[in-house]
């Protein structure tokens, strides 16, 4: 028993060492501006919310950036589930011709590098009037996440017993009705994992936002971070406060869904 607790203790040390950068972000953000360069202790000598106040009160459109990021992340999440949930089901269950090819197609396209598609997408979006539009970024981000969502969800469907669907089809339910009323509730954990993934990945997405959002008031929080250096120089305290605030939504979502995430991550990649 004592040995087990020793294992826990060492585990905790590993976690602490690994997550030190995250800690250092928070610690820096809580130091008074005057102490950031002088107070080099691991634990800040003095704690203040000064840096957070800086961000929220100075002429920096923090809330606009957060709102834009939120719209994009929610949009991507909804879009992925709407398109991904039925598609993954069809690829898991129904015997449609060529489904092996479809799965291969999805496996391959998920690996396309986004910076390679930035230029052609930019041209296409220019024609469609989707430059400086959050909707354009939503579409682009979906191309990054939808294939992965389909792969993860497919494994969730494979894990539910076929009998249930058979029962539904004997009852004379249409396929879509059976899907909505019987199948979907069964894969709720899978759906939740995918929703969390979509949200988290699109929250952190940078390249497409950088390419398609030219107008300052359309920027996401990741783009805003870059602007911040220009506006406030290297005020590391405020920079770290901004980093901490903008990772907050991710951390909340992660805490709420962490039970599912690790499993989802590996099922999408290996299975």
């Amino acid at each position: 028993m004592r040995k087990k607790w020793a294992l826990s203790l060492f585990g905790l040390i590993i976690v602490a060492v690994y997550l030190f950068p995250i800690y250092w972000m928070v610690a820096t953000s809580l130091k008074p501006t005057s102490a950031i360069f002088s107070d080099i202790n691991i634990i800040p000598a003095q704690i203040t919310l000064e840096s957070y106040q800086n961000i929220l009160t100075q002429n920096y459109p923090f809330l606009t950036y957060m709102k834009n990021s939120l719209i994009i992340s929610v949009g991507v999440t909804v879009g992925n589930l709407l398109l991904g949930a039925p598609a993954a089901y069809a690829l898991a269950r129904t015997r449609i011709t060529g489904y092996v090819w479809l799965i291969m197609f999805i496996l391959i396209v998920q690996m396309f590098p986004s910076n390679m598609l930035a230029l052609p997408l930019y041209t296409i979006f220019s024609k469609l009037g989707l430059i400086n539009s959050l909707f354009g970024v939503i579409l682009a981000d979906m191309t990054l996440t939808l294939p992965f969502v389909i792969l993860i969800l497919r494994t969730s469907y494979l894990n539910i017993p076929v009998d249930l669907e058979d029962a539904a089809s004997i009852d004379g339910c249409g396929k879509w009705r059976a899907f909505y009323s019987i199948i979907l509730p069964l894969v709720r954990p899978g759906l939740l994992t995918c929703a969390a993934f979509s949200f988290i990945l699109s929250w952190g997405e940078f390249l497409y936002a950088l390419t398609f959002l030219k107008q300052n008031d359309m920027w996401t929080i990741t783009l805003g971070m870059r602007q911040f250096v220009g506006q406030f120089g290297t005020n590391w305290g405020s920079m770290m406060a901004l980093s901490a605030l903008s990772s907050l939504p991710i951390i909340i979502i992660f805490m709420a869904t962490q039970k599912y995430i690790a499993g989802g991550l590996s099922s999408g990649a290996v299975k």
């Binding site: 607790w5 590993i14 952190g204 940078f206 990772s247």
Partner: peptide, 27 residues
């Protein structure tokens, strides 16, 4: 290995993967 808190520890490690790269780069 089996020890108290192992599940929680593994999943908290994922924070590093989840934090936006732009933020990690800045840190």
């Amino acid at each position: 290995k089996a020890f108290p808190g192992n599940k929680w520890m593994r999943s908290i490690m994922l924070l590093g993967w989840m934090t936006p790269i732009i933020i990690v780069g800045t840190i």
